[in-house]
Design a protein around this nucleic acid. Structure first.
Ligand SMILES: [Zn+2]
Ligand SMILES: [Zn+2]
Ligand SMILES: [Zn+2]
Ligand SMILES: [Zn+2]
Lengths: 138, 138
DNA sequence: CTTGACCATGAAGCCACTTCAGGCTGTTCG
DNA sequence: CGAACAGCCTGAAGTGGCTTCATGGTCAAG
């Protein structure tokens, strides 16, 4: 199968596929006489694996580690567990951050109920205040 | 005050300050005879404003809009409200995404309680399964 | 034999910075 | 006066994970 079909059957853009190849995440495919890339079902699987890991917010570097672990013939999966634990901690932390952000944004938004003049807008006044700007001194 | 002191008093890296200048977010400062940048309290305020907006997850483009609105002598603050509403929607959506991610990660992590051999690791098996790879066919 | 779909490459763009290389400025100490 | 050292300057390139662009080759249908 050539690159267009691989792209269609996985929902991954052609350019992204070529990018993964450059990054050594996808095995180098064979070529036709006309220099077209030729993919096998193995490539489809590998590409799906990558995208599933990406959907779990793994970086490409982490995907590389997971592929390595997956293809290892022996050894412990401790690194895989550690990777997931770290990722979970990261996500938890990010959720906390975003929830604080939600509060801040809601509060700020509440300072201007209906669109008014910029000079008296509670939002802009608060933005300036939070930045430590006293209107009088400008 | 020169750039090092501005950096110290705002907690913003020197390179970032120069970057903001290149991006027209900070007014061009005067220079000494030795070509050193010379900042005023006005710059401190503007920089703090930018960083506060950034802490609210605004993009630099959005910060530019907010600065423009703030410095406008007249006009309605409707664009400011719209900007905040959009940002809140974005954050809400992202939180939902991350919560689903948390569930997925927790579930995946549960498949391997203690570090074992990679060949029998529930996590790696599930990663392959989710990517549609049947071990038998490899 | 031309049209049009498909594919190729390398370079550049995106965001918000950070890092690096190589060189000037300005103060202080001997 | 000279050397050491902190501080500043510029322009270019790197980061991640792609996307977009410019330009040109390949191949089947009509
Ligand atoms: Zn390599
Ligand atoms: Zn308002
Ligand atoms: Zn400009
Ligand atoms: Zn395991």
């Amino acid at each position: 199968m050539q690159i267009g079909e691989l792209a269609r059957s996985t929902g991954v853009k052609i350019e992204t596929i070529r990018y993964y190849e450059r990054e050594h995440l996808l095995p180098v495919p064979q070529r036709t006489d006309g220099n077209y890339r030729l993919y096998t079902p193995r490539h489809v699987e590998q590409l799906r694996f990558i995208r599933y890991c990406r959907s779990l917010d793994m970086s490409l570097e982490e995907v590389r580690l997971l592929i390595e672990a997956r293809d290892a013939l022996a050894g412990s999966c401790r690194t895989v567990n550690a990777l997931l634990d770290e990722k979970m901690a990261e996500v938890d932390a990010r959720v906390d951050e975003l929830r604080q952000l939600q509060d801040q944004l809601r509060q700020l938004r509440g300072l201007c109920q209906q669109p008014d003049e910029v000079k008296t807008c509670g939002i802009l006044m608060e933005l300036n205040r939070s930045a430590g700007i006293d209107k009088a001194q400008i």
